[in-house]
Amino acid sequence: MKLHYYPGCTLKEKTTNLDESTYAAMKMLGYELVEPENWTCCGAEFPLNEEKIVGLAAPARILRQVEMEGGDKVVTACAFCFNVLKQTHIALLNDPLKQKRINAYLKDDIRIDPVTKERTTDFPEYRGDVQVLHLLEFIQKEIGYEKVRSLIRRDLGNLRAAPYYGCRLLRPKGETGIDEPDDPSIFEEFLESIGIGVVDFPFKQECCGSYLSVSLPDAASEVSYRILRSAKLNGADMVVLSCPLCYYNLDRRQDRIREKFLEFTGMPVLFFTQILAWALGVEAEILGLDQHFFDPRPVLGITDKAEVAS
């Protein structure tokens, strides 16, 4: 089955492990992912300012492209992109004036083919009919946990994962989130369906420190540390998440965290699609597990060459 998938820039350039594991896992689940043609960056932050409406143009353009290609939904794996696309979708849906203003921008789009130099103009209006789903939602609503369960190839029953939602899957509270901001369960249900033990920990919806890892690195280390520590205290073998920025702060910065908090011994941090693909029997090499700061392979029992249990 074909499915529109928006990867976003980070997944193509930096956290390619999230992108590649998404492709691999979805293939196992019977989906061929289709990226909207000529997609651009979503903008990374939804404009918080009522007057910076132009910030909606990029995400709206992506949604329009999906619509032009006959799609009625688009799936993302990156929590940040999901948040921007979903908020844009809602903003345009709830505010016809905004939609009109954005369409006025988009109408003047010019696309020049890099090879043939052919110009395309006169793009249609975006009607607002594209549903934005995070992959966790798509699995819950459209694939179904039963189906996932039936396709599991590896037994992860002896492992315990802490689902880390962070901010962008749950907030702002209201239409954006994929679950209740303070009592979510969709990530837990997902993990249960792939047969891994689930750890309930009180920091699952706390912020990882976001871009403060650049401006106030020590402060960011502290909030990241508290999340990892809470997961560990509650018995997790790994933290599972969906956001490249959270991954950066919680995994790639573990050296900085260790400098500040000496007792911290490290914790594997995985993308939900990596653990999904692994459970579905995808080979380890495809999952980019070697890109992590804290090597997750030992905890997954990958020593040399992975064995596919059947």
């Binding site: 932050e45 918080l48 901010c167 749950l170 907030r171 702002p172 509270k173 901001p181 303070d182 919806q205 706390e206 912020c207 420190g209 976001s210 871009y211 403060l212 106030l216 402060a219």
Partner: peptide, 10 residues
């Protein structure tokens, strides 16, 4: 310093 995490909003 606000990280725009929206915890306050929620």
């Amino acid at each position: 310093i606000c990280a725009s995490c929206f915890t306050c909003q929620s």
